[in-house]
Simulated assay, not measured.
Amino acid sequence: MIKPQKLEEIAKQIHESLPTGVKSLGSEVEKKIHQVLQSQLNKLDLVNREEFEVQTKVLLRTREKLAALEARLTELEK
C-alpha cells in the first residue's frame, strides 16, 4: 500500500504545521499523527501501482479481443 517512509514524511509535515504550543509536545504528537494516518489509510480500499498496471493491461487485452469479435460479427452478418 503506502510506503512507511511516505507516512513518516506526511506525519512530519503535519507535525510541523501545528501551532507552536502543540509542537512542543514533541515526538509523541508525531507518533500519534502517524498512527491515525496509518489507521485511516488502512480503511481505504486502495490497490498498489503494480496491481493497477496489471489490471490495466488485462483491460486493454479484453478491449482488443472485443473489437476483434465485433469486427468478425459484422463480417459474418454481411
Rank of each mutant, 00 (worst) to 15 (best):
I2F: 07
L76R: 12
P4K: 04
L66T: 06
R61L: 13
V54G: 07
L44Q: 07
G26S: 07
E53C: 09
Q38A: 04
A68L: 13
K78L: 13
Q40D: 04
A68N: 07
L69R: 09
I14A: 01
E51P: 02
K23H: 02
L76F: 08
Q5G: 13
T74C: 14
K3S: 02
K3V: 07
Q35C: 05
L41S: 03
K78M: 10
K12N: 06
L18H: 00
K6A: 10
E50Q: 02
K23T: 00
V36W: 00
K65F: 12
E30A: 07
E53S: 07
E77K: 12
V54F: 11
V29S: 01
S27Y: 15
L25R: 03
E16F: 15
V29P: 05
L18S: 00
R61N: 13
R63K: 13
R49S: 10
H15S: 11
V36A: 09
K78I: 15
I10R: 03
E64G: 08
K23G: 04
T62N: 08
G21E: 06
L7D: 05
K3W: 03
Q13W: 11
V54H: 05
K23V: 06
N42G: 09
V58N: 12
K78W: 07
R72C: 05
Q13H: 11
K23S: 04
T56W: 13
E30C: 12
S39Q: 09
P4L: 07
K31P: 06
K65M: 12
I14P: 00
S17T: 06
